[in-house]
């Protein structure tokens, strides 16, 4: 059972945990993200000695489990980060998680790309529209995206070429991708 569940996607695990009250599915999901949860919590444990890992992690898991049953979760990583930040920032308050508009745009395009993988006509159409959106992007962003995604250049290569820090480079790339997504979506609306 455990073995079968680990092969399922996040979405499937969430729906199982919700509809069938399947604690095992929930456990597999938590297990899948536990190392990331630990990694992002370690700095807080270091900086705040009053935080006990034996208390923090179970409490975090409980909170995640509670919100898993009630909230809309498009992307587990965003949701997890939000809950963790909320817990560390204000342990007494339970801040609900709302996926961002940009996040939903990205998710929408990702789903379209996913579906197009098996449909050649859709795929051709999608490629044409994406290239059109890419053309309308500003020259800098266009160059960045082309280099990173299409020419397979690593962070290290790009930082060396542009002289930007990795942090900066990443945020620029993220912003450019966001703009591209928005252009693509608007293009879709205009059509």
């Amino acid at each position: 059972m455990q073995q079968q569940l680990t092969n399922l996607s996040d979405k499937e695990l969430i729906s199982r945990a919700r509809k069938q009250l399947d604690r095992e599915a929930e456990g597999v999901l938590m297990d899948r993200y536990s190392h990331l949860l630990v990694a992002i919590t370690i700095p807080y444990l270091n900086s705040q000695p009053n935080l006990d890992p034996n208390v923090v992690f179970p409490a975090l898991l409980q909170r995640l489990s509670a919100s898993l049953k009630t909230q809309t979760i498009y992307k587990v990583n965003e949701w997890l980060l939000h809950i963790q930040k909320g817990y560390i920032g204000k342990p007494e308050k339970n801040t609900p998680f709302y996926p961002s508009r940009d996040g939903r745009d990205l998710l929408h395009i990702e789903n379209m790309v996913d579906k197009a993988a098996t449909n050649i006509i859709d795929r051709q159409d999608l490629i044409v529209r994406l290239e059109q959106a890419l053309q309308r992007l500003s020259a800098d962003d266009n160059a960045l995206i082309t280099q990173f995604y299409l020419e397979n250049k690593s962070f290290a290569d790009l930082t060396a070429a542009t002289g930007l820090s990795r942090e900066k480079l990443r945020s620029q790339l993220k912003a450019a991708k966001g703009k591209l997504a928005k252009l693509f979506m608007n293009q879709g609306y205009v059509k």
Binding site: L106, I109, E110, M112, V113, D114, A116, R123, L126, I127, L130, E131, L134, I145, Y149, L150, K177, L180, A181
Partner: peptide, 8 residues
């Protein structure tokens, strides 16, 4: 590769 930009 264009599609790769938005692959999950």
């Amino acid at each position: 590769k264009v599609l790769k930009i938005f692959s999950a």
